[in-house]
């Protein structure tokens, strides 16, 4: 049990036990009903939430015999892990995994660094146009990527910094089919949903006590020094939340990779997952779709598996103690 549960129990223990006797039977009965209702509600909702996950898993280990056996609905009679091996090979899992790691991992790191830096500027250092720029940050959240994607592709085909490279006579570079379209914007805090992350960091820094910073200034720190020594190291809860969100959203993103990548070898797992049926039929020459369903689900399970591991590792920071995550300033 995490610490917070312990904390919550403490005041209860300190109350005198006499109190329970004073509560009438009627009230206790009401409480019992309430608890029962709540438990039933939770069980129902958990069923709905877990249904797809269980479905993916049980289908993925079904053998061919199970697929054609109408009595097998949930638990396969002859479970097999061959489907996982097939899916692993058909998808080129290792390659896709590495690609996804680059597409999700690098922007995540860069977004945490850039967004926290920018967020601090908005939170603590006042200047005239600060509010105007911040409203622009929020505005960027509203622009659907589909709206600007064509000019973006054109831009990455002949990349130039405000026409500067052309002026200097340097050959403009083609960045499509590379991972730069995911990395460059993240450096400047304009990547996938960066506006939201800047907002979260700003809220968190605004809520931190001013005295901490003042102490750093008295010691002769510049704002950059105060940020690096005091603010950033103390922002661990919000860093974990932002890192998790950023990683997951980049990992699951199919729109960006579809737009900027054409070479199959550069596809991340998310794109491989979307095209999984084609990949399996191509590698195994099976055209009967019923045969490949378990393999398809094995592929889906493999694609989301790293996220579930990551979630299990990060949930300690994420699930409890949300009030320190910077979501609320």
């Amino acid at each position: 049990m995490p610490a917070i549960l312990g904390l919550r129990k403490k005041p209860k223990l300190m109350k005198p036990k006499m109190r329970f006797n004073k509560i009438s039977i009627k009230v206790r009965l009401h409480r019992g009903y309430y608890k029962l209702l709540r438990t039933i509600l939770f069980i129902g909702l958990i069923f709905i939430l877990l249904y797809p996950v269980i479905y993916i898993f049980t289908t993925s280990i079904k053998s061919e015999a199970d697929m054609f056996d109408p009595t097998t609905i949930w638990v396969p009679k002859e479970p097999t892990i061959q489907t996982y091996k097939d899916a692993y090979n058909a998808m080129g899992y290792w390659e896709g995994f590495r690609n996804s790691l680059v597409i999700a991992g690098l922007p995540m790191l860069l977004q945490v660094i850039s967004c926290s830096f920018i967020g601090y500027g908005f939170a603590r250092l006042k200047f005239k146009e600060s509010k105007l720029i911040f409203s622009l940050v929020l505005l960027t959240l509203i622009i659907p990527q589909q709206v600007i994607v064509i000019p973006q592709i054109m831009m990455y085909k002949e990349f130039d910094i405000f026409g500067l490279l052309k002026l200097l006579g340097i050959k403009r570079m083609n960045f499509t089919d590379t991972y730069f379209p995911f990395i460059f914007p993240a450096i400047f805090g304009s990547g996938l949903r960066s506006g939201l992350f800047i907002y979260l960091f700003r809220q968190f820094y605004r809520g931190m006590p001013k005295e901490l910073e003042d102490a750093a200034y008295v010691d002769g720190c510049t704002p950059v020094g105060a940020y690096l020594k005091i603010m950033f190291p103390n922002a661990v809860p919000v860093i974990v939340s932002v890192a998790l969100f950023s990683f997951v959203w980049h990992w699951n993103d199919t729109f960006g990779p579809t737009m900027f990548l054409t070479n199959m070898k550069k596809y991340p797992l998310s794109l491989k997952m979307v095209n999984i049926v084609g990949m399996i039929t191509q590698s195994s020459q099976i055209s009967d779709l019923t045969y490949i369903i378990p393999t398809k689900y094995a592929g889906i399970a493999l694609a989301i598996f790293p996220l579930i591991i990551l979630y299990a590792l990060g949930q300690k920071f994420f699930v409890e103690n949300l009030d320190r995550s910077g979501i609320v300033g």
Partner: peptide, 24 residues
């Protein structure tokens, strides 16, 4: 402080102009 603030925030403005404003 305002100058420092701009140092913190203006990288975003560059990114915004380059990656979002131009396509927009």
């Amino acid at each position: 402080r305002a100058l420092w603030g701009r140092l913190f925030v203006y990288p975003w403005v560059i990114g915004f102009l380059l990656f979002l404003m131009i396509p927009f």
